[in-house]
Design a protein around this nucleic acid. Structure first.
Length: 249
DNA sequence: GCGACAG
DNA sequence: ATCTTGTCGC
């Protein structure tokens, strides 16, 4: 696959500049965070968006899923699932190192690059501003938004009770994302820029992709595919091309 | 006992 | 990530 940023990152070579240790991972995150772009680099009009999610497999690897959707209709156009060995056990704040390789495999397997990527996990709403979605954005070069179900960094006041209400997620005097009420009866989700997307746009696109679930539709579908690949195999949506990757599964 | 917990 | 009971609403 084409790696446009992240130095000379290659899947077969691992993370450049990482010695494999947890401490080294934290150092690299701080370095990567300085490369994040918080201005919008979206090609308008937006035609496609892809959701990405990762889960553990029973054999200790990581299973990632990607779902490509039409931005206008939110209909899924294509889906991919890949498995990849985990470079690290799960460590809080270091999820990017564990899940990124599998996720990049699903991206490279898509028939075309999406105009925007939405990753389940935090973007800059991370202690060192380098969550999974930021790793993904820097590695792929794609405009990327992070969407997470739980808070990792920052503080927020509870957003209003109605769908679409949001409040700032802030760390000290800096805003690092949003707490967003996507369903009136559910706790808020946490949205932040991954790379090449502004704070404002990250919120706007998350709300635009809402489809009745707590998570925006691209991430909702990717999560379902990553955590319950068997369920997905059963028919549920028309117009869906079943194109599971077999190369690495 | 209670809060916190990215995937 | 995953396991777990019961409940409510469409």
């Amino acid at each position: 696959m084409v790696i446009r940023a992240y130095g000379t990152f290659r899947l077969d070579a691992g993370f450049p500049g990482w010695d494999g240790s947890e401490h080294g991972a934290r150092l690299l995150q701080s370095e990567l965070a300085s490369q994040v772009q918080l201005s919008d680099a979206l090609r308008m009009p937006l035609r496609t968006i892809a959701g990405f999610s990762a889960a553990d497999t029973d054999d200790g690897r990581v299973r990632a899923a990607a779902v490509l959707l039409d931005v206008q209709t939110l209909e899924p156009l294509h889906a991919e699932v890949c498995k990849f060995p985990a470079p690290l056990p799960y460590v809080r704040e270091l999820l990017g190192f564990r899940a990124l390789p599998a996720m990049l495999e699903t991206l490279s397997a898509l028939p075309r690059e999406p105009d925007l990527a939405m990753v389940e996990g935090h973007g800059i709403a991370h202690p060192r501003r380098c969550g999974l979605a930021t790793h993904f954005g820097l590695a792929s070069g794609l405009p990327t938004i992070g969407v997470a179900r739980g808070r990792l960094a920052g503080a927020f006041v509870e957003p209003g009770p109605l769908e679409g209400e949001a409040s700032r997620l802030r760390d000290g005097d800096q805003q690092i994302g949003w707490a967003v009420r996507t369903r009136s009866e559910s706790p808020p989700i946490f949205v932040s820029p991954g790379h090449r997307v502004s704070l404002a746009a990250s919120l706007e696109y998350s709300l635009q992709m809402q489809c009745g679930h707590r998570l925006p539709e691209p991430v909702h579908l990717a999560r379902r595919l990553a955590t319950q690949p068997d369920e997905w195999a059963r028919p549920r949506r028309r117009g869906m091309r079943d194109t599971h990757s077999s190369r690495l599964v």
